[in-house]
Write a protein that binds this DNA or RNA. Structure first.
Length: 272
DNA sequence: AGTGCGACCCGAACGC
DNA sequence: TGCGTTCGGGTCGCAC
């Protein structure tokens, strides 16, 4: 998916486009995308406004006053703001129309994304939200917290970094980058990670995510954030998607392996 | 409880 | 040119 930096970019972009506009209609083209009651979805949204857009981990949270619209972009979800009379693209699945005749359109080639409309007081009953771990940009992410969560696990550290209940917001791209900066081999078991290495992971995660947010995210293949905004972090990637290219640190060829079913890129010299 | 893997979808890239 | 196969930025649920 868009990872935390991409979601943050979408959030900031959309805040400038859709806040405080009254919703006049909702067109649900692909109902499976909605996890809450379909009828309620339309009825509740019409007449309301988005008064804010928040984010928890990779979840976008549209604030409707008494309700939240939760939106997870998964792999390829995007939002576009278009004039209502523009033709509907085949990958646009949910269309929210405002009284000024603009649309907020949810576009998702693979239809993996999900939305969930809930009463505000029920936010903490949403399992995925409740279980979110600590974000890299939060100072509560300490080496002690990480060590406690990691040191009894027999899984590769790469797999652990993708677990949203430990660190919230890292995906496949930034997990590889964090391990490179930390000089840790992606296959190293959680139980073999030292407290010092947890400190490295914590520092690297913060560094990578802060820089990626400043860049507006990364663009790989299909991902551009809403409104065609293209992330610029790609130029700073040290290992991800760089198989057979040379390590920017030591000139060794970057290699690609599978870890937990996910493509994983690393420098065999820097990350022993 | 912890771990591994298929399923959810579709388009792009690749092999023949 | 065309057809079949493989792969993927994420997460969930099921089986062991």
């Amino acid at each position: 998916m868009p990872e935390i930096a991409e979601v943050e970019t979408v959030r900031n972009t959309l805040k400038n486009m859709v806040l405080n506009k009254t919703i006049k209609d909702v067109n649900i083209i692909y109902p499976k995308m909605i996890e809450s009651d379909i009828k309620d979805f339309k009825n509740i949204l019409i007449g309301k406004k988005f008064i804010d857009i928040k984010r928890i981990g990779k979840w976008l949270i549209f604030d409707l006053g008494d309700y939240y619209l939760l939106s997870h972009l998964r792999m390829e979800g995007k939002y576009f703001v278009k004039e209502h009379n523009e033709e509907i693209n085949k990958h646009e699945h949910i269309i929210i129309t405002f009284t000024d005749n603009t649309d907020l359109r949810y576009h998702d080639t693979r239809k993996f994304g999900r939305m969930n409309l809930i009463k505000k007081e029920n936010l903490n009953e949403v399992e995925a939200i409740k279980k979110q771990g600590i974000e890299p940009i939060n100072d509560n992410l300490t080496k002690e917290y990480l060590y406690e969560k990691i040191h009894k696990k027999n899984l590769p550290i790469k797999t652990i970094l993708l677990d949203q209940t430990i660190i919230s917001g890292l995906g496949n791209i930034y997990a590889d980058e964090v391990l490179f900066l930390s000089k840790i081999n992606p296959l190293k078991k959680g139980s073999d990670i030292t407290l010092d290495e947890c400190e490295m992971i914590k520092k690297s995660a913060k560094e990578v995510i802060e820089k990626a947010i400043l860049c507006g995210g990364t663009t790989i293949k299909s991902y551009t954030s809403s409104l065609g905004v293209t992330g610029r972090f790609q130029q700073y990637l040290m290992v991800h998607k760089r198989e057979n290219e040379l390590c920017k640190n030591c000139n060794t060829s970057i290699i690609r392996i599978k870890v937990g079913g996910r493509s994983t890129y690393y420098c065999p010299n820097c990350q022993k």
